[in-house]
């Protein structure tokens, strides 16, 4: 039983130290390849005028429009109407996390079960919170750190630093936990029960939890951004 993130092949060397392609980097590239290929396919599909004013139910256009509109509405309701343009960013984030979480269905180690994958996502959110807050609210943004009195500044700073940590570790922990539980289940089950029973567990731990974690990460990020950067009144 091995849950480690294996090194698969050397990539490059920095200061005499070899950097390897790990399983999670490989998984990320596979996910990227799938998503980029899908994007190219959709662009070709659109360019050939397959998009219609009234899409057929269940068609690719229908599903895409549903996804895009849902993400736009989610951004508008969670991040604020003035920040609904973040829907594009979170569309990418959601699709990326979702496919990373579903990687076990392709017999890959989920990239999100590696903290090196979740930290950049959380750092993006952290940067968006503070850069947008500073650019959009200026002095008001800074005043939030000394509310109600100046003594609360360290607590606010710790609180802000905790956000990316909680975001990245929540996602990492949930996916790694699911992966470990699945493996333990396979080991602990008698052979004759390994045929159908794990499918139900896969459905919950990989499919349901995978979608739920992608959703939680996106919604929490939007909510954090709204708290610091939205100009909308509560």
């Amino acid at each position: 039983m091995d849950f480690t993130n294996h090194k698969m092949a050397p990539l490059f060397t920095i200061n005499g130290r070899t950097v390897y392609m790990t399983q999670s980097i490989f998984g990320t590239w596979v996910v990227m390849g799938i998503l980029i290929a899908f994007t190219i396919f959709v662009r070709i599909y659109m360019r050939r005028k397959h998009f219609q004013d009234v899409p057929k139910t269940g068609s690719l256009q229908n599903v895409l429009e549903l996804a895009v509109e849902s993400m736009h509405n989610m951004a508008a309701s969670n991040a604020g109407k003035d920040l609904d343009w973040l829907g594009g960013y979170f569309f990418g984030v959601f699709a990326y996390i979702l496919l990373c979480n579903y990687a076990p269905l392709l017999k890959l180690r989920p990239p999100t079960a590696d903290i090196a994958t979740t930290i950049p996502l959380a750092l993006n959110t952290f940067l968006l919170i503070h850069v947008l807050g500073l650019v959009r609210r200026k002095g008001e943004y800074l005043k939030d750190f000394v509310k109600p009195v100046f003594l609360f500044l360290p607590i606010h700073i710790i609180g802000e630093l905790a956000r990316p940590l909680s975001l990245s570790f929540r996602l990492f922990g949930n996916i790694l936990g699911g992966m470990i539980m699945m493996d333990l289940l396979y080991i602990s089950l008698p052979i004759f029960l390994r045929i159908a029973l794990p499918d139900a567990i896969h459905l919950y731990l990989d499919v349901f939890v995978g979608a739920l974690q992608a959703f939680i990460f996106s919604v929490l990020s939007m909510t954090f951004i709204r708290e610091r950067a939205s100009l909308e009144e509560e």
Partner: peptide, 23 residues
């Protein structure tokens, strides 16, 4: 690894946002 994944993430998100979501 965080650096590599950060670049991967940004590339993917930019491509998906600009070439899929936006159109």
């Amino acid at each position: 690894e965080v650096g590599i994944q950060w670049i991967n993430t940004i590339i993917l998100i930019v491509i998906m946002s600009k070439f899929l979501y936006k159109p």
